[in-house]
Write a protein that binds this DNA or RNA. Structure first.
Lengths: 244, 244
DNA sequence: TTTCGTTGAAATGTCGACATTATTTGCTTG
DNA sequence: CAAGCAAATAATGTCGACATTTCAACGAAA
């Protein structure tokens, strides 16, 4: 009943969820849904995840729930206290900065490798993804979910060129952790036309560097590109300095 | 009853396990023990993890077991098949190379940051750890477990200088994944005096570069240092080329 | 009167037993 | 010998017993 409005975009997890609906066990489905709810802020950072509430929300028993929570525990999206149940992993500017900086460095690593290893197919996919993102830049405010999806696809197309599943797995994990903060920022202030203009310019520069195989410049650009939201987030009043 | 001999060293997980024995829930204890058993090869790659067997081995019911397995699922140490239970994550030279290369790059990233940010305390801890490792180099064959521990402490002391919990978490995860292969290699051929001589020389060079704050050299050295085991592992007969 | 500590009851999490469902094995029959 | 059906085997999910925590009410001391 207390169905909070799901405010903002997320990632492509929803797609997985859809697939999981019929196959797999119910724990896997809950993992996807619960992850969504945490990343998008339905459950606030630090909030208690009472079993009774989760049970009604996802229509499952405690066993699948505990399995799902156990997985999110490793991904550091929830924390568990001795016998006091689960809570959403708390947030802090300290952790936010660490995640964003690490993510920027990892992404730069991916981009560097991709520049060295990427082939024609790689270039083609980047341009295709960039085009789809470009086409949607006007409808950004009407459907932020779809825009975020295309934006994500664009960056994924770039790093895919590194051909390292392990490294890409690390990257995905960091992206998810960061998306909690990003969604928080989007709820804070949505109308950021100037920001998105700068964003688009950076994309153009990045594509240029990639196609020129200018590794140095590409890495610098992507690192700056991923770091800029963290600067805005530092001003946020809703994020505590350190973990409470 | 079928108590296989625990063959080889591992990491510091055992310490955690000890602490967890009295506090925490039983799932947390099983996670530590089961991880040990997988990393050290008690359970072979690809082997089926039958609930009945695990139940008797760890003296717990199925609920904590499923929780533990769920966590190792995210860490990619086990895999789950639709309704057919869990297996140990299979190994392959392909994955081995990917893990080792990624790990080397991440470690180089940590070292680079540590060189920039490390202070006197950092230098002191490195020298202390190096000394303890040095002192044990003769007893290496008698107690490989303890030697591995000191070796690990040494490298940990170096990367600790980067002061990034997130990045260090990524590093630890990759270290654990790699240790499965490393243990496999150690069982294959234990007497590798020449290898360890080269190893020690690399350590000395590394320390020298670190104290000189020669970032470039330190990163190159550590990357090469972590990559060399993978070259030996490529020759192994026991690891399949690709996942079966 | 207010504040702090204690105690008891209610709530919540943990874990194992049982039931359900899916898969595999083995036997029978064409 | 192959195909299909039946029994077993094994994993998944629900439920309930037990243990721990939380909260509130009560009482004593300042």
């Amino acid at each position: 009943m207390p169905e909070h409005a799901v405010k903002f975009p997320g990632n492509l997890q929803r797609l997985n969820t859809m697939q999981n609906d019929h196959k797999d066990n119910s724990a896997a489905r809950v993992v996807g849904d619960l992850k969504q709810d945490i990343l998008q802020g339905y459950f606030a950072p630090g909030e208690k995840l009472a079993m009774a509430r989760l049970k009604t929300r996802y229509n499952v028993g405690v066993s699948p729930l505990r399995e799902a929570l156990s997985q999110l525990l490793i991904e550091q999206l929830v924390v568990v206290e001795n016998q006091r149940g689960f809570r959403v992993h708390p947030i802090s500017k300290e952790e936010m900065l660490d995640i964003y900086q690490t993510r920027a460095r990892i992404e730069a690593l991916c981009v560097g490798l991709a520049v060295d290893q990427g082939d024609d197919e790689w270039e083609a996919r980047i341009l295709a993804a960039a085009h789809k993102m470009q086409k949607f830049s006007t409808s950004m405010e009407s459907d932020p979910q779809e825009w975020e999806r295309r934006h994500h696809d664009f960056h994924s197309a770039i790093v895919a060129g590194c051909h390292s599943p392990t490294l890409l797995g690390v990257r995905r994990s960091l992206y998810e952790k960061a998306s909690r903060y990003r969604n928080l920022w989007l709820t804070d202030n949505m109308q950021q036309t100037d920001f998105f203009d700068a964003n688009r310019k950076e994309h153009d520069q990045l594509i240029d560097a990639l196609l020129r195989r200018d590794r140095e410049t590409a890495c610098k650009l992507i690192e700056h590109h991923l770091l800029s939201p963290s600067k805005a987030l530092l001003e946020s009043q809703t994020i505590p300095e350190k973990t409470v």
